[in-house]
């Protein structure tokens, strides 16, 4: 069983778990894979910018995120489930974002 089959099997597992009725076509599988790779690679590249804060911290965090991302593959179906159209999840994320922004502005500016 090569890696592609493993990933496909995992996607199928997650899809049955989330009870999605969509058939798993070539197009949807490849776009899920592409989204997965885009997500992980752009996240890792963005984390490299932590070098401006501290080089050692950057290496540790990039490696840690890489390992975590690999073990939790595939992330995309779960991420999609999080960002659904249900109002309750939307308002939840909005309130969380409000909290994070206010906290960060207070904490970030008083300490930097």
């Amino acid at each position: 069983m090569n890696i592609y089959d493993v990933v496909l099997k995992r996607i199928r597992e997650i899809q049955t778990k989330t009870e999605e009725q969509e058939p798993l076509t070539n197009i949807s599988a490849s776009s899920t894979l592409a989204a997965e790779i885009t997500l992980i690679s752009s996240l890792l590249i963005a984390l490299v910018m932590l070098r401006l804060v501290n080089t050692v911290l950057m290496i540790v965090i990039v490696l840690a995120v890489f390992v975590v991302a690999l073990t939790f593959m595939p992330i995309m179906p779960r991420l999609k489930r999080e960002q659904n159209d249900s109002f309750n999840s939307m308002i939840f994320f909005v309130i969380v974002a409000l909290g994070i922004i206010i906290t960060l502005f207070y904490w970030g500016n008083l300490n930097v």
């Binding site: 659904n84 159209d85 249900s86 109002f87 309750n88 999840s89």
Partner: peptide, 12 residues
């Protein structure tokens, strides 16, 4: 009820 009216009704 918000969870019934504004829930994720499966369509995209």
């Amino acid at each position: 009820s918000a969870s019934k009216v504004l829930g994720d009704n499966g369509e995209e």
